[in-house]
Simulated scan of single mutants.
Amino acid sequence: IGLTKDLFLHLVPLFLWSLDAILADLASQQPGSKGAKKGTQPASSKSQLAIFVALAMVLRRKPDALVSVLPTLRETSKYQGQDKLPVIAWMIAQASQGDLAVGLYAWSQNLLPVVSAKSSNPQSRDIILQLVEKILSGPKARTILVNGAVRKGERLIPPPALEILLRVTFPASSARVKATERFEAVYPTLKEVALAGATGSKAMNQVAQQMLTFAFKAAGEKTAELSKEAAGISIWCFTQNAECYKQWDKVYEDNLEASVVVLKRLSEEWKELSVKLAPVDPLRETLKKFRQKNEKALESGVDGARQSLFKDADKYCKILLGKLSRGHGCLKGMAFAVVALAVGAVVMSPNMESLDWDKLSVFV
């Protein structure tokens, strides 16, 4: 049941009042605290429990209402900080029991960014991971979230959230922490939700272009696992939107390391990827442009490191163009063979007038 305007106007203040009361009470219990802030009356233990119960009931029955206060929780300083995080996570957990999609959306919008913040610490990462692990733990959670990856026009895992996940799941070996393995466990499902959608739709075209921006950059970095995963996402972008090739063309020379990684991946996994990348004409034209840029750069005498990159890029461009040419030739050869067989059948037929020309034309 959707929220009426009147109900919405009442629930939002109720949420914030309840949250303020809970936070004020928690603050008054902190060691060294001088009590609640002026103007805020600390709640008794019974009334505090009543607030928790009432808030939990509302969040479970009307999880949509939480979405309305997410910007306030995200942008207002009094709701920021390690001491507020458990309560915010608890609220999202309650809403997720009413609607998993709301829970994951709230998690990606308000909690996941904390992981990449300078203030991130083991305690905050643990709280954030516990919540998403809980959301994903249900037997039908994956199906529900992938099928409902877009909720009221908003993606549950938008491109900026996937970028954060990419970074925290595939850090440099020296930057790995205890939480890294837990992110590795939830990443595949969250990535699947992030990439879910109707191929070719306007929305997915935009998503692909947004994702290519950060994925392509990450593909050129030194961390092998990060580079590999980012290259895979970059190639996925090409399967969704041919405009991404133009985007690649614009940044090709400024991101040679990434270009080499992606070109190598395409050439090594061409048999599997070629079907997903069809039609391949945009790729063929892009590779031809790359070859022109490579030749121009090599003729101009670029420095040693970049010269090596241009040579590698050109090598993979040649390999891919060769594969594309052979694939095109095979299709032409197959068509010629079918026509030849059809003509042969006509010539060899003892009774040409009895041939079913309609069937023959369909066969060809």
Rank of each mutant, 00 (worst) to 15 (best):
A106F: 02
W107M: 05
W107S: 02
W107C: 01
Q109T: 13
L111R: 03
L111G: 03
L111S: 05
L111N: 02
L112M: 08
P113I: 10
A117V: 02
S120R: 07
P122F: 03
S124Y: 02
R125S: 11
D126Q: 13
D126T: 13
I127M: 07
L129Y: 01
L131C: 03
E133Y: 03
I135W: 05
I135Y: 04
L136A: 08
S137T: 06
G138D: 14
P139I: 00
A141Y: 10
A141H: 10
A141F: 13
I144K: 14
L145G: 00
L145F: 01
V146G: 04
G148P: 08
G148C: 11
R151D: 01
K152S: 12
L156E: 08
I157Y: 05
P159R: 09
A161S: 15
L162P: 09
L162H: 08
L162Y: 13
L162K: 09
L162M: 15
E163C: 11
L165F: 09
L165K: 05
L166K: 02
V168T: 05
T169R: 04
P171E: 06
P171A: 08
S173Q: 13
S174D: 12
R176L: 08
R176C: 09
V177Y: 00
K178T: 13
A179S: 15
T180P: 01
E181T: 11
E181M: 06
F183G: 01
F183Q: 01
F183S: 01
Y187G: 04
Y187V: 09
Y187E: 07
P188N: 07
P188I: 06
T189C: 14
T189I: 15
E192A: 15
E192W: 04
E192D: 14
V193Y: 02
L195Q: 10
A196R: 01
A196M: 01
G197K: 05
G197F: 06
A198I: 15
T199R: 15
S201W: 10
A203S: 12
M204S: 06
N205W: 02
V207M: 09
